Every structure is written in C-alpha cells, then in structure tokens.
Amino acid sequence: MATQVTVELVPLADGGSAEAAALLAGIYLEYFDESALPMAVRYARAAAEAGLPAGQRTYGHILATGLGVEEDLARAAELFRAAGEGGDAYAAFNLAQLVDDPAESLRLFEIAAREGIVAAGAVLADRLSALDRDEEALGWYVWAAERGHTGVMNAAACWCRDGIGTTPDLIQAVRWFFVMLTHGDGDGIHEAIRLAKAGALDEEEIREAGRLARAPGSAEALISTVLRSGRT
C-alpha cells in the first residue's frame, strides 16, 4: 500500500506540491528502510522550503535526529519554531524539548498539550512537579491519564491517594489503579487491595471508583474478594 501511495504522490511532489512532498517524506520515514532516507530528506526539505508547517516539522525532525543528514539542532529548532508559529502542535512539542529557557519550554509544552498532544501534557506535568507546582502538575497528570497515557496513571493515582496537589481522594486513586489494570498494568491493583483491606473505602466508594474507571467488574471483584471476605 505504501509503495502504491508513493507512486501516486511522486508526480505531484515533483510538480511542486508541498503537501505531497511532506506526505512522501513521512511515508519514506515510516514505512521504508534506511535506503529511502535520501528521498525522505529530499522531499522533507522541499516541503520545508515551501513554508509548509508539516514539512518544516518533518525536516526539523530529520535534522534533530541526524537521519540521513548531519545533525543540526540549531536549524532544527528554527524549523520547529516556524512550524509551531504556523499552527503545528507537534512542532511546538519538539521545540519545547530543544530550547534552553525553562519558562519557554513550559509554555511550548502547554501550547502543544492544549492542541491535544497527550505526551506534551505528561511531560508538562513532570516539569511542573519538579518545580513543586503540584496542583498544576496533578491537573496535567489527570488530563493525560484521561486521554490514555499509561505512563502517568500511577502518578495520578498515588498523588490522589497521598493528597499531593489536592486533598486526599481515595475514590480517584482507586479509579486510576483500576484503569491501570484495564491497560494491562497490575501494579496498582495491589495498592487498591491494601486500601480496601484497611477499610479506607466502603463498597459504594469502590463501586464509584469502578464506574469512573469504566471497570465495574474490577470493583465487584475487589469487593467480593476483600470486603466480603472480612478483609483478611
């Protein structure tokens, strides 16, 4: 399929379509081996020189990672900035990881996150946590977790449990432990069991956590195996 698409796009890109060139560059990078790197570089550069944000971002990525070219972080940053100013949220995310100014980096991560880049929200949360801006950090951990970022679910759960950035909220904590389990990570369920055994939540609170997690089965399993067995 990728080969067929390239055949269709090459005449358009060679005819001056920046959009086609950017698409071709992405296809060569994603679906072909290293032998296709020169073509990826060629079309990404063409799209970038035409001022297309997607092309600027792709060529910036090539320069930042040294894919088929000599690494050039300064030029990559220039391209990411231009693409970001053109409305490309992924470019803003990429630039945020290159700039030296912490305040600008935070601003760019937030721009990318507010445009829907979930990974940007997760990184933003980590950066805010490092600055002891816990309430803001928790907000972004929860934001990213709600959008399926598995890497921050444990942080969201533990912070809600321990009252970091918020008042302790065990329902929300168990909610995220349940969500972790639905994503194949069973580490958090042990903490949910511990909380249930300690009597920290009653049946209705566990059910509410299960409802929020869209995992009512996990809630009923916890109730039947822990609460109704006498928390032994």
Rank of each mutant, 00 (worst) to 15 (best):
V99H: 05
A74N: 07
G84V: 00
A119P: 06
A82Q: 14
L108Y: 11
R114V: 04
S105L: 07
F80E: 00
R75L: 13
V99P: 08
A74S: 12
L98Q: 12
E85Y: 11
Q97E: 11
L73K: 14
D100V: 07
A103P: 05
A112L: 02
R75C: 08
A119N: 12
R75P: 06
E78F: 06
G84H: 00
E110V: 02
A89S: 12
E85A: 08
S105G: 13
E71A: 08
A103W: 14
L73P: 06
E110N: 08
D100Q: 13
D101C: 12
L73T: 12
A113K: 01
A119S: 15
A82R: 03
E110Q: 14
A74L: 12
L98R: 10
A77L: 07
L98V: 08
A92P: 01
L108E: 04
E85Q: 15
E78Q: 14
R114T: 12
I117S: 05
D88F: 02
P102K: 04
P102V: 04
L79Y: 01
D88H: 06
D72P: 10
D88Q: 02
Y90F: 15
E71D: 12
D88G: 07
A83I: 01
E85M: 07
P102D: 09
A77S: 15
Y90N: 10
A82V: 06
V99C: 14
F80L: 09
G116F: 02
L98Y: 06
V118K: 00
D88C: 03
E104I: 08
E110I: 05
L106S: 13
L108Q: 05
A112I: 04
G116S: 06
